[in-house]
């Protein structure tokens, strides 16, 4: 238990550092003109295209996006129900789901906007005594009525398998083995996805603006 707690503490410190590094990049502010011209209330997330070599990345990543978008203030359609709905209606793959025009999605579901996601990187690379886990995703939000691009962004996060390298080769080796064992099922990249999402949705200048269900929603727009 103490080992687990210590590992968890180390892990927390590592991701916190990464989030700090990832979130603080000063990026060019996004031009929200189109967004404010067609501010959506509801967003339907299409299951992502997956360019990574990790097959399970598709649904692992998909399961992390409802929370940040809903907490940002939007109605988010239930991602698993939507996925099943597409499958039941003759679109068995996410590739096919991503081909459906936004206007059609709006007509069928009533969504104001559709979010298309592209998982560029997802997974871990093992290097000697360590592993590096990377998640990179791009997002495009399209207005279903006009087909206008409302917002787009990129999320990126990276985590080292033993984030707090102890300086002792043997200790690091053991820590790397334990970390891998713990994360056998709930893979590290799944957790790194949440950090990538923070860099995608939360930055004030480039992120997704607050929506109507957020107490911070700016009604002036």
């Amino acid at each position: 238990m103490t080992t687990r707690a210590r590992l968890a503490g180390a892990w927390l410190a590592a991701v916190a550092l990464l989030a700090l590094l990832g979130g603080c990049e000063t990026a060019k502010p996004y031009d929200y003109t189109n967004f404010h011209a067609h501010p959506p209330r509801s967003i339907l997330v299409i299951p992502p295209l997956n360019e990574s070599t990790t097959l399970e990345g598709t649904y692992s990543y998909l399961s992390t996006v409802s929370r940040p978008i809903a907490e940002r203030g939007y109605y988010v359609f239930p991602v698993a129900v939507v996925d099943q709905f597409f499958k039941d209606n003759g679109l068995p793959t996410t590739g096919e789901m991503n081909q459906v025009p936004p206007g059609k999605v709006g007509e069928i579901t009533g969504a104001d906007a559709v979010m298309y996601l592209d998982l560029k990187q997802y997974g871990s690379k093992f290097v000697v005594f360590n592993s590096v886990t990377t998640v990179e995703v791009t997002a495009k939000l399209i207005d279903t009525r006009t087909g206008t691009l409302l917002w787009e962004g990129r999320g990126f996060a990276q985590q080292s398998g033993n984030g707090n390298g102890s300086g002792s080769l043997l200790a690091d080796l053991i820590a790397a083995a334990i970390t891998q064992a713990i994360n056998k099922k709930a893979d590290t990249a799944h957790n790194v996805s949440r950090i990538a999402n923070a860099t995608l949705f939360l930055p004030e200048n480039t992120g997704l603006p607050y929506g109507p269900y957020s107490p911070r929603y700016d009604r002036a727009h």
């Binding site: 927390l12 603080c24 957790n191 004030e204």
Partner: peptide, 13 residues
């Protein structure tokens, strides 16, 4: 843990 980490990120309110 991830949630807490995001909270800790100083520049992301």
């Amino acid at each position: 843990a991830a949630g807490a980490a995001v909270l800790l990120a100083g520049c992301v309110t």
